[in-house]
């Protein structure tokens, strides 16, 4: 005990204390952290709560029984996946009229409310469910995901997942920093202009590979900085034509000008 007391002012003591504190906090967190709710086990309460939310927030456009109207499509058969994607990314409720719903930082509902809404819409008619965690973790085969991405996704979403233009003002959004669950749900539900990639086309494992590839892209660092949107030759060419040539012309003018 004496030996310990004598060393309490040792420079390493503070470090040791910090380390102990961190380990204790981390351990406690992993024990006490809330576990993600299982969406598959929707109770009747969830469905009822979801129905109330639906009537209050969605029925104006989608109809009292989600049958759709001239402003909004019917939600028959879209499943819980579509609801979780559209509401969870802030696309719904629609912020304003436009060619397509845009993802928004401002999510209007809590996770629990979204789960209830999804449970209610899924109870109306069968559709794709919210995917299992094991297929959205992004721990799959990155190289295979890249191959699948190039064939099935890159034509609209760009080789680097930066998104791109479609016809008449519509666009394919950027896939950077999108959660694996939302990517998976977009593939199975085909939101807006996007076609559906069902499990017969891309198996759940294939989808996980694509998510792995996209998450790997997110981690990629850009040594030169200034990626100009990762759009390829259009933005890069534009930059060098405007700034590079502009600089050259400026230099030529300065070279030719007489000194005062």
């Amino acid at each position: 005990m004496n030996a310990l007391a004598a060393r309490r002012r040792h420079p390493a003591a503070i470090l040791l204390l910090l380390l102990l504190g961190l380990v204790a906090t981390g351990g406690l967190y992993s024990l006490l952290a809330p576990k993600p709710a299982q969406a598959a086990t929707a109770t009747a309460d969830d469905v009822n709560a979801g129905k109330m939310l639906f009537l209050a927030n969605c029925a104006t456009c989608h109809g009292l029984h989600a049958e759709g109207s001239k402003d909004a499509p019917s939600l028959a058969g879209v499943g819980a996946a579509a609801v979780d994607f559209q509401v969870g990314t802030g696309r719904m409720p629609l912020a304003g009229p436009g060619v397509q719903a845009a993802a928004s930082k401002k999510i209007m509902f809590t996770d629990a409310q979204i789960a209830s809404l999804a449970a209610y819409v899924a109870s109306l008619s069968p559709g794709p469910a919210i995917p299992d965690d094991q297929y959205t973790k992004g721990d799959g085969n990155i190289a295979h995901g890249n191959e699948l991405f190039k064939v099935n996704c890159a034509m609209c979403h760009n080789f680097a997942g930066s998104g791109g233009a479609l016809t008449r003002g519509k666009y394919a959004p950027s896939l950077r920093n999108v959660t694996g669950t939302h990517i998976y749900e977009a593939m199975v539900s085909g939101p807006q202009s996007m076609p559906v990639f069902n499990d017969a086309n891309l198996s759940p494992t294939d989808k996980n590979d694509i998510i792995s590839y996209l998450h790997e892209l997110d981690k990629n660092k850009n040594p030169g900085g200034m990626n100009l949107g990762n759009l390829g030759p259009v933005s890069e060419g534009m930059f060098i034509w405007v700034f590079g040539l502009g600089l050259m012309i400026g230099a030529a003018v300065w070279l030719g000008a007489k000194a005062a």
Binding site: E147, V151, G190, P195, V196, F197, N198, A200
Partner: peptide
């Protein structure tokens, strides 16, 4: 067959709204 897996496609696999390469 699907690209790049080259596996055959059943007509029932192709749901409405889906696209296969």
């Amino acid at each position: 067959v699907r690209d790049p897996e080259l596996s055959p496609i059943k007509a029932s696999d192709v749901t409405i709204g889906s696209v296969f390469n």
